[in-house]
Design a protein around this nucleic acid. Structure first.
Lengths: 204, 204
DNA sequence: AATTGTGAATTGATTCACAGCT
DNA sequence: AGCTGTGAATCAATTCACAATT
């Protein structure tokens, strides 16, 4: 499959370009050069152009890129055309924070349900908080592919195993444990404390 | 400065190793091989060993690493020995979520104060939520170096400028805008929706 | 005249392979 | 015998430089 030839980081940057294009579109800008778009995304112009070549040719020499058209192509390339249903597991401090967070929905992800060992901490929100016992069945019947994992590190591997067994293929992991998962399952880690630690290293 | 010779990603991994070491320490394990530690951190043994050489020699050939000693060395290398005071700007959905999040404190970061245009949304917490007008002075007098930025994208650049002007050197940016900052200021971006988008690309 | 698209060159990161210690 | 430390080799990503196009 050709997709595998694309550097992983290039895919991240595609999302970045997409964000900038959305803003340009909102400002009624119809055409943009690689220089301008790259600046907005915080990369070099050549890198932007190279990234785009992994997917095709979208620009007009001498002119630049059509904002609308390029945006559409990126959406298509990223596979964010249709809505992706998602579940969240672990409604603790961080988990309930994430449930309140509007940013997911804005980019086309809908959290269908949350799961917790103690679903009594239920939300005044439209998102139902269900007991862990119902998770497997939920994933199976709704054909959920992606999960946000915000349980404590002590149980995160165990829960990840359940998720995988139920058919989850992508996990956004907020625990500080590096999950061991079989091939074919993708894990993205977000470790907030680590980001701060990293910052503190680079200031001075 | 020698520090600049160290790959940026190696510093991230150092935090990862540190995490695994803490767990080993908690389990009263006193010695660990590069193979075992690398597995826990999700990297290859050679990479772990190479990463460590950027900072010095810590192991004993034929034996492995002393958990306690290596952990101490990493803490020192990462500069997380003393507590780092931090401020948070933008107490919206995500911001207030982050205020509740215990993970920062656990890794030695203390959020001294939060700032918001509408500090009336004040917290029942020990962390005071102050008006933006008092931010600059606060940063200056308390000599704060790091800030968590969770304001809406529409104002994030503007607020970042203020932070930098006041003396902030490291920003953990949760807005979806790539910040333009002068040399010497470090920005780490956390974009949750983008992480999901990225996952969704790789599943299938 | 301006700007893309891209092969070639460069730079950077990872992995290998094995010498060096304990 | 086992495992680290590291120079050399490999692999991957970025940037350059310029031909191609409008």
């Amino acid at each position: 499959m050709v997709k595998l030839a694309i550097p992983r980081k290039a895919v991240y940057r595609l999302s970045l370009y997409q964000r900038s294009l959305q803003r340009l579109k909102a400002n009624k800008v119809s055409t943009v050069s690689s220089a301008a778009l790259a600046k907005a995304a915080g990369v070099k112009p050549t890198q932007l152009r190279k990234d785009l070549t992994y997917f095709g040719q979208f620009g007009t020499r001498g002119l630049g890129y059509d904002v609308e058209a390029l945006s559409n192509k990126l959406v298509e390339a990223l596979g964010t055309t249709r809505l992706q249903p998602v579940i969240l597991v672990g409604v603790g401090n961080l988990g309930s924070a994430l449930l309140h967070y509007q940013g997911f929905a804005k980019e086309g992800f809908e959290i269908l349900a949350a799961f917790d060992i103690e679903p009594g901490k239920k939300h005044h929100f439209d998102i139902p908080v269900l007991p862990m016992g119902r998770m497997r069945e939920f994933i199976r019947t709704k054909k959920i592919k992606m999960a946000v994992l915000s349980v404590p590190g002590t149980v995160s591997q165990e829960v990840a195993n359940e998720l995988v067994a139920a058919g989850i293929q992508g996990i956004l992991n907020f625990s500080t444990i590096i999950l061991q998962v079989p091939d074919g399952v993708v894990v993205n880690n977000v470790d907030l404390a680590m980001e701060l630690e990293n910052l503190s290293y680079f200031i001075r």
